[in-house]
Amino acid sequence: MNEINKNEKVIPQTILTLNDDFSLIKRFIDGDESVFKTLVNRHKEKVRNLIFVTLNSTDMIDDISQEVFISVFKKLDRFRFESQFTTWLYRITINKCRDHLRRVKIRSILSPFSASEEELSYPSVSMNDDVEIQEIVRKAVAQLPEKLRTPLILKDFEGLSYQEIAETLGTEVGTIKSRIFRARESLKKILEPYKKELL
């Protein structure tokens, strides 16, 4: 705790701008590894929330977030300053989420009865309960195919531009535009049973 305070005194978050990611990375490459903690503190919540929305599970958030930042730590000296740090960070996060989903899928193939019916069905809820609405939306998003879900989350949840999403996912802006549209259409269909309450 003291260490966090100490670092925050040295580089106060309030005065850092977007470009300050670059200056922190430069200092890290120059051998000052202590700045990495500042970098983590600046972006950890983005990473954790992206993992949460993508996986719709809180179980693995801490583990996958640590995997993401350990990967960043190991590769940061090879960062080329051609795109924003967040774009690079999101790409690593999404890849880690994909790896995790792949492992889960393999496990579910090996033990097909592990996926419970409850996880796949729609809960009957009272729409006054905000927590349950949140749950319905998360489950609906989780039902989207991965290639539609990720651009939609990056746009509507993380607030990235089409250009940034395209850079993160390594695709064209036109593709992102199309995928986000298709994601919204699919989401509307999934939420059809709750149209009156939600839409």
């Binding site: 705790m1 983590v40 950890k44 930042f69 350990i70």
Partner: peptide, 12 residues
């Protein structure tokens, strides 16, 4: 998610 203030410490 609620802010995890010890995340960076654990990670380091």
């Amino acid at each position: 998610l609620p802010d995890d203030e010890y995340f960076a410490t654990r990670l380091m």
